[in-house]
Design a protein around this nucleic acid. Sequence first.
DNA 1: TTTATTTACTGAACACTGTTTATTAAGTTT
DNA 2: AAACTTAATAAACAGTGTTCAGTAAATAAA
Lengths: 200, 200
Amino acid sequence: MGITDRKEREKQEMRKLIISAAMEMFITEGFDKTSIRNIADKIEYSPATIYLYYKDKDELLYEVQGQAFMEIYNAFVRDVTATDPMDRLQQLLHSYVNFGFEHPDLYDLMFILRSPMNATENDWPNCDEAYHFLTKTLEECIDQLRFTDVNLAALSIWGLGHGLISLYIRERIKVTKIPDDQIRTAIKATVDEQLRLIKR
Amino acid sequence: MGITDRKEREKQEMRKLIISAAMEMFITEGFDKTSIRNIADKIEYSPATIYLYYKDKDELLYEVQGQAFMEIYNAFVRDVTATDPMDRLQQLLHSYVNFGFEHPDLYDLMFILRSPMNATENDWPNCDEAYHFLTKTLEECIDQLRFTDVNLAALSIWGLGHGLISLYIRERIKVTKIPDDQIRTAIKATVDEQLRLIKR
DNA sequence: TTTATTTACTGAACACTGTTTATTAAGTTT
DNA sequence: AAACTTAATAAACAGTGTTCAGTAAATAAA
């Protein structure tokens, strides 16, 4: 049936159109300040139409999260090029931190925003892959680390990286009185120091 | 003038009434799900009345933040009782992490929520005091640490603590697949390990 | 080709949100 | 007792996410 094929294709295109617009606005305006009506305006459809393709605003976020996790994963693949395991770990961390600096709104909706974690309890698209990149990288050098459990090592390194970036994004790091133009280097230095610390 | 005194007193009482109601609802429902109308209902006044005492919803948050920072500071004073500097540091960290576990919604509005950081750019009530508790505690044992700069040491320890708690509160830590009933102990263990790591 | 049916879309509404303003009622001063 | 000041509110405005009855076009059946 050619027609149903085309219909399906058009449906997918419409979904993509909506998500692209949503993502663009989430990045430039943030999730909260982007309304369904804004998105509808941008793609020149009525707000109600969006609800024919997505259940609610959370599903839009869920989908954009998936895209964003793909992007950070691709950044990992792009940046982590070394062969030495410890070097790879460092490259991974730099890649992560840089992603946060360069795409703060994406980082926000991936790791900070409270939202569609209700989606089937467990599966969280493409986040697993990104996390797996970390655990895999850690596995390769776990014998050089002061950790025996990969998950605990991940906690120690992801926790710090995320903590610093989110304090930065949500402007809490200001309380340290570290000058604005030095914060990024301070964060990077702290993360690098962490790598040295966890080395056996 | 007795009357103006009483008026001033009544005004302050009203402000307190509003803030108490707001705080209670921020804790039980969260900031986003608490509306001005809800608060007004609770104290049996009209929504417009609240605007006679506070500029906007952000000012409410700002005020509750102040209270919350006082509370965490009090928790620090209560929990950090040791005389040995390193012990004090550990007690401080435990106090911080426990506060996050026991008052997740307060923690949220203090450290995660995006909001009234616009308030005069700089002053952020009672947060400085709490942060100062950390830097002071660090100063006392900086010679036993692998850091020379107190602010960088704070970054390393606050960053990790905050990172883990916020990943927990915003449910991102689930991706580690660490069983729910083990996460808290895993977080505490990670923080303790960090203390060992930064020890010279 | 004409009729029937399915599909895609939308205008208008609902129930909420933060916030402002004109009006009323009470308290205070003259 | 009259004039003035203050405190509180009802009602409105502009926005939000979301739903639903109704319309117009595309497809299927006659």
